[in-house]
Design a protein around this nucleic acid. Structure first.
Lengths: 222, 222, 222, 222
DNA sequence: TATGAATGAGGGTTCATTCAT
DNA sequence: CATGAATGAACCCTCATTCAT
C-alpha cells in the first residue's frame, strides 16, 4: 500500500478513469474491472494503489474537489461589480459548469448521487465542497438584502437560487427526451440556452429577494 | 406464465413490498430476495408473478402513480381561490408530500432516481406523472401572469417554483447531517418547518414572477 | 437462506464433503470450490444452504460431534469392570478412534487444527466435545485414586493420560516417515500396534497415578 | 539471483521477521507482505534474497534450529546428577521453552504446524531437530531403566514423557479460554505453574517407568 | 398457484510473484 | 543490491433467474 505517488502514471490514469465511471454509474454500480479497463491497468491495480474501491472513490472525490477549486469560474467574481451583476455572473457561470459535459461536471454528478445514497464521501462534501459555493452566494445575497451572510433569510434565498440552477442539471435526462433540441449531441446544453436560463433565474431571484426586504409573510389558502 | 391476476394476495404483497424497497434502494440496488422476504413470499415469486425484476418495477411505478392521482392533495386546489392563494396551497401541499415519509413519497424517490439513472420507467413518468403536476402549476402561473399555460415564460417560472420545493427533498441527507433538529426521527420534516419553507417559496416566487410581467431581461456580467 | 432441511440431498453431500475437506485442509485452506466439486454441487450451493463458509464449518463440527457421541466406543465402558480394566479399555478404544482413518477421525483433526488457529468452532468444542471425554477419564482416575473427579490431581492425571494417546495422533506424519512399517497404506495404524501402544500407556499411567496416591512432590536439580 | 549474503542486513531482518510471522501464522497463512513490512523491507525483498517464500521458510527453520542448539537449556543437563534429577531438570526446562513466549518457542510452533500440514521443512526437522531432544531423554530413561537408549521400551517411555509436556503447549488456546488465570497477558505460562506441572509430570513418569522395569503387560477390558 | 432447490455469471479482494529500473 | 510498480490466478460471496415438483 504505497503512499501517495504522484509519479505513478497508472495511478493517475486510474483516478481519471474512476472519476468518469463513478460519475456515470455511482459508487456501487461502478465496476472496478471497468475502471481498470479504461485505465488500461490490471484488475489488481486498484487494490495496489488505493487499497480498495472505496478508498479510490474517496481519492477521486478529493481530487475532483481540488481541481474544481483551482478553476471554478463561479468562484471568481469581480468584487467591484454591483450585487445584481455579481448574481448574474454567478448564475451564468454556475449553470455553465453544471450543464456542460466533461470533468468539470463529474463532481456535481457525484454529489447528486451522494444525496440519494450517501457514502463516506458525503461528509467530505458537506465539509469541503458545499460551503465555498454557498459562501459566495451568501455574500451576494447578503449584499443585496443588506443582511449578514449567515442570516436565516439569506440562507433561504441561497437555497432558492441554487435550486433553480440545479434543477436543470437534475432533469437533464428528462430534457433529453422532452426538449432534445436544447441539448447537444455530447449531452451538453447549448451556450445560448444557458445564457437564456441564467437571465431568467437572475431576474426571478432578484425580484424574489426584493420580497424579503419588504413583506412579512403570506396568509394562506387551503 | 400466469395471466394478470390482480386478485392474488401474494402479488399484492409483492407490489407493496417492492414499492418500499425500490424507493429505499433504487431499482438496481433493490434485491429480489429482500422484496420477497418483506412480502413473506418465496424467492421465485417475483419471476412467477411478474416475469422479472424490471417488470415488477414497472408495475410498481404504475400503481404508485395511480394511487398518487387518487389522493395527491396538491392536485386538488380550490378553483375559487385567488391565484396567490392557489400557489401557496400548492407549494405547501407539494412540500408536504415530498418531505414526509411513507408511501406518498415513494413515487418521488423513484422519480429522483430515474433522473440519475433512467430505466424504462422514466418514459412512463414523463408521459404520466410529470404532466399533471406541471399542468396544475402552469395553470396557476398562467393566471398570475395572464399568459397562456404553454407559454415559455410560464414554463420557466414553473421550473423555478418546482425546483425550490424539490431542493429540500434532494438535500434531505445533507440536512440530516447539518440541521438534524429540523428532521424527525422517522426522517420526515416537521410540519412547522414545512409551513415555514412553503411561506418563503411562495413569497419568493410571487415576486419573482412579478418580474416576468414587467422587465425584459438583464444585460451584463463578467 | 433456508432453515435446516434434512431432506435436501445436496445439503447432506455438502456436509460430508466439507467434513472431509476441512479435516484435510483446515478451515482457511479449505476451498469452497473443492467442497462443492466433491459434493457434485454448484459453487453457490454453500451460500444457499449455509449462508457462508464459516457457517458450513460450524454445521459440520456440530454434526460430527453428534455422530461421534452416537457411536464413540470409548464412551461406552462396562461400569462393572475394575477401574484398571476401564482405563485399559478407554485407552484402547480412544487410540483406535484416533489412529484409524475415516469420518471418526475428522473431528479429531478439526480439534487439532482449532488448537493451532482457533475459530468460532473452538468454543463449541470446549463446551461440547471435550467435557464428555474428560468426564469419562476423570471418573476412572477418580475411582483409581479415591478422589473426587474434579480434584486438581485428577485433572493432572487426565492430561497425562490423554496426552500419551494424542501424541500418536499428532505425530502420525512423522511416524509415516520414520516408522512407515507401523502404518497401513490407508494411513491408519495397524490394530496390533494400537493394542501394543494401549498396553504401554495403560501400564505407564496406572503406575504413574500410583505415585499421586503416595508421594508429595519432587525436590530437585537445575 | 544473488549469492548467499549472510552479511546483508535486510536479509537478516527478513529472517527475524519471517520467523515471527511463520510461527504465528504458519507457512501458508503467513503473508510475504507482512514479513516485509515487519522487516521494513520492500515487498520484493523475499524473492530477491530467497527466491521464493518456501525457501525463506526453510532458511528460517534451519536458523532457528541452529540457534536453539546453541542455547536450549534442556540440552545442557548436569551429567553428575541422578537420573531422577536429570529427568526433573529436563522436564522443567523443556516445559519452560514450550510454555514461554518469544523466539525460543518459535521452532516449537513451527514443528507443531509441520505435524499437521507437512512441508519440505518436516524432513529437516525429523533429521535435525527431533533426534537431539529425543536423544537426551532416551539417555535419561535408559539410565533409569538400565536399558540401552535404542530399546523399544525406552522409546515408548520417551514418547510418554514428551507427550505430557507437549500437551500443555498444544492446548494453550484452550487453557486461555478455560483457565485464563494460569496464563500471562503475553500468552506465556506463569513460572510457578510451569514448575508445578513439571513436578507432576516428573513424578508421574518416574512411577510410570518403574512399571516397565517390573510388570509384563495388562490383561484387557471390553 | 406456488415453492424449495439449484445455478452461473460476475462482483471485490488477496497475494506470491515478476519486471524494469 | 534493491525497489516501486504491476500482474494474474484464485478465492469467497452475491443475486437474478430457472427448474422440477
Amino acid at each position: 500500500m504505497p503512499s501517495y505517488q504522484p509519479g505513478s502514471d497508472t495511478r493517475n490514469r486510474l483516478m481519471v478513469a474512476a472519476a468518469e465511471v463513478f460519475a456515470e454509474q455511482g459508487f456501487r454500480h461502478a465496476r472496478v474491472s471497468d475502471i481498470c479497463e479504461r485505465a488500461q491497468a490490471n484488475i489488481a491495480a486498484v487494490n495496489y494503489h488505493f487499497g480498495d474501491k472505496e478508498n479510490l472513490y474517496l481519492a477521486v472525490v478529493q481530487k475532483l474537489d481540488e481541481e474544481s477549486k483551482a478553476d471554478a469560474p463561479y468562484m471568481q467574481i469581480d468584487p467591484d461589480a454591483s450585487a445584481e451583476q455579481k448574481l448574474h455572473t454567478f448564475v451564468r457561470q454556475f449553470l455553465g459548469v453544471l450543464l456542460r459535459t466533461g470533468p468539470s461536471t463529474w463532481l456535481g454528478k457525484l454529489m447528486a448521487r451522494e444525496m440519494m445514497e450517501p457514502t463516506a464521501a458525503l461528509d467530505y462534501m458537506i465539509e469541503h465542497v458545499i460551503p465555498p459555493v454557498e459562501g459566495v452566494v451568501r455574500g451576494i445575497v447578503g449584499e443585496l438584502l443588506s443582511l449578514p451572510p449567515d442570516s436565516p433569510i439569506v440562507q433561504l434565498c441561497v437555497s432558492s437560487i441554487l435550486s433553480q440552477c440545479m434543477i436543470y442539471f437534475d432533469t437533464k435526462e428528462i430534457a433529453l427526451r422532452m426538449r432534445p433540441e436544447l441539448i447537444n449531441p455530447d449531452r451538453s446544453y447549448d451556450p445560448a440556452t444557458i445564457a437564456f436560463l441564467a437571465g431568467h433565474i437572475t431576474q426571478f431571484s432578484l425580484h424574489g429577494m426584493h420580497a424579503m426586504a419588504t413583506v412579512p409573510g403570506p396568509e394562506s389558502g387551503t
